[in-house]
Design a protein around this nucleic acid. Sequence first.
DNA 1: ATGCAACTTCAAGTCAACTTGACGTCAAGA
DNA 2: TCTTGACGTCAAGTTGACTTGAAGTTGCAT
Lengths: 143, 143
Amino acid sequence: MLDISELSRESGFSPSKLRYYEEVGLIRSVGRRGLKRLYEDEVKTRISLISLAQTAGFSLGEIKETIGSEGRPELDRKVLAARADEIDVRIKELAALRDGLRHVMNCTAENHLDCPRFQRIIRVALTKKQVDAKRSKVYLGKR
Amino acid sequence: MLDISELSRESGFSPSKLRYYEEVGLIRSVGRRGLKRLYEDEVKTRISLISLAQTAGFSLGEIKETIGSEGRPELDRKVLAARADEIDVRIKELAALRDGLRHVMNCTAENHLDCPRFQRIIRVALTKKQVDAKRSKVYLGKR
DNA sequence: ATGCAACTTCAAGTCAACTTGACGTCAAGA
DNA sequence: TCTTGACGTCAAGTTGACTTGAAGTTGCAT
């Protein structure tokens, strides 16, 4: 059992952030000592997971949908599989971006955006997205 | 030469977003036809790059620092190298998260957060971050 | 028993990244 | 020529993810 400052220290999350996550249902405290929240150790893993999912570009809402908001996460295999696939796509995009940057570092072309090798690297990463964008009539790309 | 609606259609970015990016100096128009902006074809590659960098988790400010705001991007090899390294780290985190999700899908443990295999996967991804968090006295992890 | 640092709630503030709205302008087709 | 619709500017609004501040409460060391 941890109080909020211990959890904060061990997780690197500010107390206000922890309270906020609890408010939106991403974590929960299991009781109070007086007014003060008490957290189970388990919540640390949960916080790590949230942190990781955020760097993967998921919103708190998506994270909640994926790992559940209750004590025991109810997991929907389909959702998990879909998230894993999304991450795979993102990894490919990131790899392309990284390769593009590394290429530009060593490329002697005057204007790097004109370098065909660079453009190819970028284009490959975006192929799927472009297709999606075209498919939605105009630019209805909501975000 | 493209006007804003053509660029919008081809890039999947809303006109307001394009104007906003121009305002903050991420892209530029090369002139006007009447009042209307005209863009060079080159800007499409630039937009793709911006889009990619955003999914990699970089802010518009960081992107501007990295690829430059002027017509010809002035690139600092050190910055580029640093970004590429950051992306490598992020890719590792994402891979761990994906593996974690895929494991949970097939894991029969009652509570998945308690599954040691899952915890190990998550922990590995966060090792560096944790260390950083501890190093900064309290949770001064600004974000 | 008392003091006080560390907690609590709740409302409001902040920041990035855009979007929306009001209102004005222009170019091109009927 | 005149209308119309796609553009323009500028200020204000929105959303997500928190942080900050004010004002109150409480466990615990003295």
